[in-house]
Design a binder for these strands. Structure first.
Length: 474
RNA sequence: GGCGACGUGGCCGAGUGGCUAAGGCAGCGGUCUGCAAAACCGUUUAUCACCAGUUCGAAUCUGGUCGUCGCCUCCA
């Protein structure tokens, strides 16, 4: 089956057909660095990670650009009256962002342009828009985009601008605009901006929020590129405005496929920085949860559906990851010659099932169900003693291959962990006393180690152990 | 008010017209074990929110009702 995506523009699933065969150019809306990103933000970046990983898995060469908004109202507000520059303030959260995406094993994009690094390009695009009659200057000196000049305005969000409800959130200073839905391309400096401004041919001020994405995406990916993504809340007005700006300025179609991921909810409601009901990745880590559990929680959901975050769900995800790792370790230990001869067939079936799911708009739940079915089948074969060393290698290769998409660091399941000598001695002692049927002492040792987070498992081939690392011992 | 998403067993969650409605979690029984753990085998709970319609046949299509949630210019 061919790869298909649900395109927000058409509201239909469409077969993916890149502009240039074998190459994908994608732009993904990144963070505004005014605070630590929360776990809802990371759902979007995780979706984009799975998208780029799967495209690569399918053999495409990917160029991903993710912007970093390092100048905006909130950043300016945060540094006002403080002895820190806007750029230093933003840098702290840029650093945190990169630490977090490493923690989650999110692959780096090819380019991370910052807004402040592309003021020149933004000014150029605004001038072009002015030349073509799409922009006008308000009484306050700011420059606005006149949506009435762009007949297609609203085509992404499927919104009729005339029917927009003008709520209480429209500020008084919007009198400068000809139309209430016009948006700022360039914000003239005022005293609230402090020392955050650029002296340009447009005057003293700073760029509006939307222009950075239009300018930076076309700069790095060309006027017309394949995929543009973001959270559903970006559909309107942000992405709508990007289209208006870019297509008006370049005269070309902007983007072929618009992909948007749904929100992560907490307690059944929307999570937002402004509501203060959010967890950062750091909060999760402090509670002792593995980042891989968090990743699994994200990865195995359907990006088009809301997910309700809870620590119960996260614990279940942690168990699932551990089970996956146990499976890998178990398979790897197989060293016999006896084989069912069915492994090639099972692997093919699992791979086909996985790809069928992912091809269908990245349906990860379906793809993962295939993997679980596969695991059950292999486990059954192991119990029959019919998994050969060669079979084992094929299975490991397959699992590591799909992990290029899942990013669960499966290879780390094989990292040999060293136990402290005193613990090794205890395990040896326990083996001895078990042979003597001294089960009181045997169980005492097992409980002792369990308290230290080391789980012992007896098998015909000797005692195995694992470190229960998903939870902090309490 | 405009636009949109969703409502499947105790929980999570696949399934867009047709065999006995995936998969996971939790529970229960069994194999294995000194007992566990892990694994495997078996297994309980679904009038697919409700009503009406289309159809030989609907969780799946159409209309309506109820409920939950989101966007409507900071928002992933």
């Amino acid at each position: 089956m061919a790869l298909r995506f649900l395109n927000t523009m058409t509201r239909k699933k469409e077969e993916f057909d890149p502009i240039k065969k074998g190459f994908v150019k994608m732009y993904t809306c990144g963070p505004t660095v005014y605070d630590f990103a929360h776990i809802g933000n990371y759902r979007a970046y995780m979706f984009e990670d799975i998208l780029r990983r799967y495209l690569k898995y399918k053999g495409y060469k990917v160029k991903q650009v993710m912007n970093i908004t390092d100048v905006d109202d909130k950043i300016i507000r945060s540094v006002k009256g403080k002895d820190i520059s806007a750029s230093d303030y933003a840098q702290k959260f840029i650093d945190a962002f990169f630490e977090d995406i490493d923690t989650l094993n999110i692959e780096r994009a090819e380019v991370y342009p910052t807004a402040t690094g592309y003021v020149k390009e933004m000014v150029a695009m605004i001038e072009k828009l002015m030349e073509k009659g799409y922009g006008y200057r308000g009484e306050d000196g700011s420059i606005y985009y006149s949506i009435s000049k762009f007949p297609d305005y609203g085509k992404l969000a499927h919104i009729n601008v005339n029917e927009l409800k003008t709520g209480a959130r429209v500020k008084h200073d919007e009198y400068d605009k000809e139309n209430l839905s016009d948006f700022a391309l360039w914000k003239a400096w005022d005293e609230n901006d402090g020392n955050v401004f650029w002296e340009t041919s447009l005057g003293k001020g700073r760029p509006g929020w939307h222009i950075e994405c239009s300018a930076m995406s076309t700069k790095h990916l060309g006027n017309h590129f394949d995929i543009h993504t973001g959270g559903v809340d970006n559909i309107f007005p942000h992405h709508e405005n990007e289209i208006a700006q870019a297509e008006a300025a370049t005269g070309e179609k902007f983007v072929n496929y618009w992909l948007h991921c749904e929100h992560l909810l907490v307690d059944g409601g929307k999570m937002a920085k402004s509501k203060g009901n959010f967890y950062t990745l750091r909060d999760i880590a402090e509670r002792g949860y593995s980042p891989l559990a968090m990743r699994y929680f994200y990865v195995t959901s359907d990006y088009r559906k809301k997910i309700d975050f809870s620590f119960e769900a996260l614990e279940a995800s942690g168990k699932a990851v551990e089970r996956l790792f146990e499976f890998l370790r178990r398979v790897r230990k197989m060293s016999g010659e006896d084989s069912t001869g069915r492994i090639d067939e099972l692997v093919k079936s699992a791979r086909d099932g996985f790809e069928d799911g992912m091809d269908d708009n990245l349906n990860a739940p379906r793809a993962m169900a295939e993997i679980f079915t596969f695991i059950s089948e292999v486990n059954g074969i192991i119990d029959e003693g019919k998994l050969s060393k060669e079979d084992s290698k094929k299975i490991i290769d397959f699992m590591l291959d799909i992990d290029r998409v899942l990013g669960l660091k499966m290879e780390s399941a094989f990292v040999e962990k060293e136990l402290a000598d005193e613990i090794k001695l205890l395990i040896e002692e326990r083996d001895h006393v078990r042979k003597d049927r001294n089960y009181a002492r045997s169980d005492e040792i097992r409980d002792m180690l369990k308290a230290k987070g080391i789980i012992l498992m007896d098998s015909p081939r000797g005692t195995m152990w694992k470190i229960d690392e998903e939870y902090v011992s309490s």
